[in-house]
Design a protein around this nucleic acid. Structure first.
Lengths: 214, 214
DNA sequence: TGCAAAGTTTCAATGGGTGAAAACAATAAG
DNA sequence: CTTATTGTTTTCACCCATTGAAACTTTGCA
């Protein structure tokens, strides 16, 4: 198969040959085995050997599907980023910079909280893992950072007249504000709606500017 | 010595016993050996054994000084963060939220570009490494994220009446904007002044709000 | 000088990650 | 229905970061 994966992702539909179907099944088995074990024993405490065993493949095979232990958890992140990027390219001619960004963030939020091919419990588990395991947090921050860079470039392309610097400032300020605010106020007895409200308030601050805080 | 390091850091002055002086020397030797090797062969390609050998200690001893290979590069980061935090606590009573933040960022910038105990070449090398090695980038982002969290808490404490959420939004927006803008526009033939100018422009955007971008 | 504390080395092990060759399985061709 | 061909997985043999424990050496102090 090779270490890279240029195949199209079929979120749920049927796929061509037996070969492809088998690969999808193995991939899914690895993801589920990993999440299950991470939940039971914790991320650090789970070994790749155990994951592979649960998924009924050799340890080596794990690395044909994911580049690292962390990457299982982010199995669909690049796909989501692509979606966000292309969502930006379809800017309606009257939309403002802020409008486009808010639309993308809104859409990404919906994506992130809808369970594409995971059970609700697994989706929540995944979120919890990313927020608590330092290694996963670091990976998430890196992925988010790269996304922001790409978004900034996309934004500049969508708005002639906007410099890359200003596009970056806009993306960085908006996402930076939301990210830190949500994380700073996170606690256990919080509903998704609470979090959304917090995010909205943070977005407002970024949009109106720090000056308004006095 | 134990794995943790609660000792006071002396930036350059003389230190008490022979024991302490020796430790400082070993520490410095490790940092310099690591940077030298990273420069010659690259971060990934350098092994801890090589670093330890250059510094004339056993591999195991390396871990008495740094928790990981990445951490050598960030040897002074926590100290710098502490400085930033306490710089915030000394808020003058008439200073605005924005004012305090800008002051801290300004000061951190000066710190970061002054060579505390490194040669100018090593300081530049270090910066280059952090910007190019994925492992170091990830670590830097994580450290920066934690700093922001702490800054937000400090800011809230310094401004009664400011919610944690709004403090976080302010810190996140400002640092987020600067971070992404600087990184997005970074290129080789850029002077420190260029970078500073970029940062200032980004800060302006965050302070006046995205709305001003149209 | 002699002992306790601090720091270092040595040793053995664990676990993530990788390259290469051998073994297998799916599919296209005849 | 065989046989090549090609894609995938396994096995094997490594390398390296990191960690615990025990033995050993150095320093600080009585």
């Amino acid at each position: 198969m090779g270490e890279n994966n240029k195949d199209v992702q079929y979120s749920s539909g049927m796929v061509e040959g037996l070969r492809e179907r088998k690969k999808q099944r193995t991939r899914q088995a690895l993801i589920e085995a990993a999440l299950r074990l991470f939940e039971e024993k914790g991320f650090e405490e789970t070994t790749l050997a155990e994951i592979a065993e649960q998924a009924d493949v050799s340890t080596r095979t794990f690395f044909s599907y994911f580049a690292s232990k962390e990457d299982v958890v982010f199995y669909d992140t690049t796909a989501r980023l692509e979606a966000a990027i292309s969502a930006m390219e379809s800017r309606r001619p009257d939309e403002t910079v802020t409008g486009v960004l808010l639309r993308i963030i809104e859409e990404s939020f919906e994506q992130a909280t809808s369970y594409q091919d995971l059970t609700p419990a697994d989706a929540a588990l995944r979120m919890r893992l990313i927020l608590t395991e330092p290694a996963l947090q670091a990976r998430a921050l890196l992925l988010l950072f790269d996304s922001q860079l790409r978004l900034a470039k996309g934004l500049r392309d969508a708005f002639p007249g906007l410099t890359l610097a200003d596009a970056a400032a806009a993306v960085g300020a908006l996402i930076g504000a939301i990210k830190l605010t949500v994380m700073a106020t996170l606690d256990d007895e919080q509903t998704l709606e609470d979090i959304l409200a917090t995010a909205h308030r943070a977005a407002e601050v970024a949009i109106s500017g720090l000056r308004t805080l006095g």
